[in-house]
Amino acid sequence: MAEDMTIESYLAAGGVLTNPTNVPPRYRAELMKLMATFVDSELAGAAGFADVINAGPGIKERIAAAKIVLEKTDNADRVLRIMGDFGADADRYANNHPWTTRLERDADIGTSRTDHDMRLAVFNYPLDGWVDAVAMNLLMGRAVVIQLTEFSMISYQPLAEAFRTITPIETRHAELAAEGVIKLIEEGETAALQAAVNYWWPRVAASFGSSSSTKAESLKEMGLRKSTNAELKTRWEAEATTLLESFGLDVPS
């Protein structure tokens, strides 16, 4: 039996890794980065949303917001535990960054991250009240679902399984945002919603990363990516457009 197959060719052929002991160093690094990006984004997202709970106009809205904060923190914990298998100090990690800090609302950072953690750029912008939070959650919620669907097929089995558990939970968060939008439109907040959508659209689009990423090929060979940044972004634009149109909102150009 050809037992001398390298891990690299095994991965390129669609193989799956199952524990930290046989993960090659570069794979390990990319996997850790990917997990850190998810954990930091969830923790920063939950921290930002926590402040919005009290801005909810009714008890249903406050319950929805609190549920989102709880479950995003829980999802961060699931992935942080896998980082722990690789030696990360999970307890320290969770308290290592001030997850509530934000930049100015009009800061222009494009796709770059701050120096101190790996949260997606979009989580560096502050939320501005309830309507703004709902719009952000609507657009980012779809983006998260698209990203998670992609990463649910990742070649590191424990993480793929975690993402398969997390995806329906995050999908529900996006649905809660859609329900919030319907309610806001009924209450005559369409103009404010449109303004918030205009603000968040380019920032969420930027969270798919640079379209000129040079890593795509090597990540594909490692089984850590299937689609390119540009493909995922196109998918999101299509889904988000349909969504906005169904609410009678304009798609920012």
Partner: peptide, 30 residues
């Protein structure tokens, strides 16, 4: 590769083949 920049997550692990370095904090490597 890096993530936490605080010696906690071990994403930035590398191996020293020659010379010496001083690690000021280490919460991740055994």
């Amino acid at each position: 590769p890096y993530a936490c920049k605080a010696g906690v997550c071990s994403t930035c692990r590398c191996k020293v083949l020659e010379g010496e370095v001083e690690m000021v904090a280490n919460h991740a490597l055994e």
